[in-house]
Computed example of a mutant assay.
Amino acid sequence: MKTLKIILFAVIGIIALALVAAMFVKEDYAVEKEVIINKPKAVVFDYVKYLKNQNNFSVWASMDPQMKKTFKGTDGTTGFVSAWQSKNEDVGTGEQTIINVVEGQRIDYMLRFIEPFESSANAYMATESVDSTHTKVKWGFSGKMEYPTNLMLVFMSMDQMIGKDFETGLNNLKGILEK
């Protein structure tokens, strides 16, 4: 009985320590990757502003060829919704909505993940002229993990988790646009 009490108090102590530590851990995370594409900015932006085109270069879109996709609204404009549903846990179910378009420069999305877990995040693609024939494309993602789940940010790197997928997607985009 004494050993059981010691184990119980140790477990409670570890949980309490984790909860206190979580109060001092950042809640926000952000990932941004970029690539230079050998095309003028207008050509690049005209391609990336359409969410349907992400199906051609995004790593997640290629993970499940059987994924169900639905679209609502006018692609490339504020309010357009691209939704997906997959049995593949790495893809899951969710949707993204265009929330802002700065023509020729940037498109912002709100991502809502439904399965395998519920969360939301902001994402964007931005274009910047390097010169008349080269464009820098930035693909970014940011969100917040509320207390106490923010403690997981100590043990995982969002950059390592999704940064590689962004890099692969940007390289796929580069390959498509430079053909």
Score class of each variant (00 low, 15 high):
residue 34 E to Y: 09
residue 108 D to R: 05
residue 29 Y to C: 05
residue 20 V to A: 14
residue 12 I to R: 02
residue 14 I to K: 01
residue 120 S to Y: 10
residue 176 I to V: 08
residue 39 K to M: 14
residue 151 L to F: 09
residue 33 K to R: 15
residue 52 K to H: 10
residue 113 F to N: 10
residue 56 N to Y: 00
residue 35 V to T: 01
residue 90 D to P: 00
residue 22 A to N: 07
residue 25 V to G: 01
residue 61 A to G: 05
residue 106 R to W: 00
residue 144 K to A: 02
residue 101 V to T: 09
residue 162 I to A: 07
residue 168 T to V: 13
residue 141 F to S: 05
residue 44 V to H: 12
residue 34 E to V: 00
residue 25 V to D: 00
residue 70 T to I: 10
residue 40 P to R: 09
residue 96 Q to S: 14
residue 113 F to C: 09
residue 68 K to I: 10
residue 115 E to F: 01
residue 18 A to S: 05
residue 169 G to C: 03
residue 28 D to H: 12
residue 100 N to P: 00
residue 112 R to V: 15
residue 24 F to Y: 08
residue 29 Y to A: 00
residue 168 T to R: 14
residue 114 I to W: 05
residue 69 K to E: 11
residue 24 F to E: 00
residue 1 M to G: 15
residue 146 E to Y: 04
residue 17 L to P: 01
residue 145 M to V: 13
residue 48 V to I: 15
residue 139 W to H: 08
residue 37 I to P: 08
residue 154 V to W: 09
residue 174 K to C: 06
residue 107 I to T: 11
residue 91 V to E: 03
residue 36 I to C: 07
residue 46 D to R: 05
residue 15 I to W: 03
residue 162 I to H: 09
residue 47 Y to D: 02
residue 147 Y to L: 12
residue 173 L to S: 11
residue 25 V to A: 00
residue 122 N to Q: 14
residue 65 P to I: 06
residue 58 S to I: 03
residue 28 D to M: 01
residue 59 V to R: 08
residue 50 Y to E: 02
residue 30 A to H: 13
residue 39 K to P: 07
residue 161 M to V: 05
residue 92 G to L: 03
residue 127 T to N: 04
residue 95 E to W: 09
residue 23 M to G: 14
residue 121 A to K: 03
residue 161 M to T: 13
residue 90 D to F: 03
residue 67 M to W: 00
residue 37 I to D: 09
residue 55 N to E: 15
residue 61 A to E: 02
residue 95 E to D: 12
residue 148 P to L: 00
residue 74 T to S: 12
residue 177 L to E: 08
residue 81 V to Y: 01
residue 112 R to P: 02
residue 114 I to E: 13
residue 94 G to Y: 02
residue 90 D to H: 13
residue 136 K to M: 10
residue 78 T to V: 15
residue 44 V to A: 10
residue 94 G to D: 04
residue 163 G to E: 07
residue 111 L to D: 06
residue 62 S to L: 08
residue 178 E to I: 06
residue 162 I to Y: 08
residue 73 G to V: 03
residue 137 V to Y: 07
residue 106 R to D: 12
residue 21 A to V: 13
residue 51 L to M: 13
residue 56 N to A: 11
residue 78 T to A: 13
residue 85 Q to F: 00
residue 32 E to A: 14
residue 101 V to P: 12
residue 5 K to F: 15
residue 82 S to E: 15
residue 40 P to A: 04
residue 22 A to M: 09
residue 167 E to N: 05
residue 6 I to V: 14
residue 76 G to A: 07
residue 41 K to C: 10
residue 32 E to R: 10
residue 94 G to R: 02
residue 138 K to Y: 13
residue 33 K to G: 10
residue 149 T to S: 14
residue 80 F to T: 08
residue 108 D to V: 06
residue 153 L to C: 03
residue 145 M to S: 14
residue 11 V to P: 09
residue 80 F to R: 07
residue 126 A to H: 06
residue 4 L to C: 06
residue 108 D to M: 06
residue 40 P to W: 04
residue 148 P to G: 00
residue 1 M to F: 08
residue 18 A to E: 00
residue 89 E to I: 06
residue 86 S to V: 00
residue 137 V to P: 05
residue 104 G to K: 12
residue 38 N to F: 04
residue 154 V to C: 08
residue 77 T to N: 13
residue 179 K to T: 12
residue 69 K to Y: 12
residue 137 V to K: 05
residue 133 T to M: 07
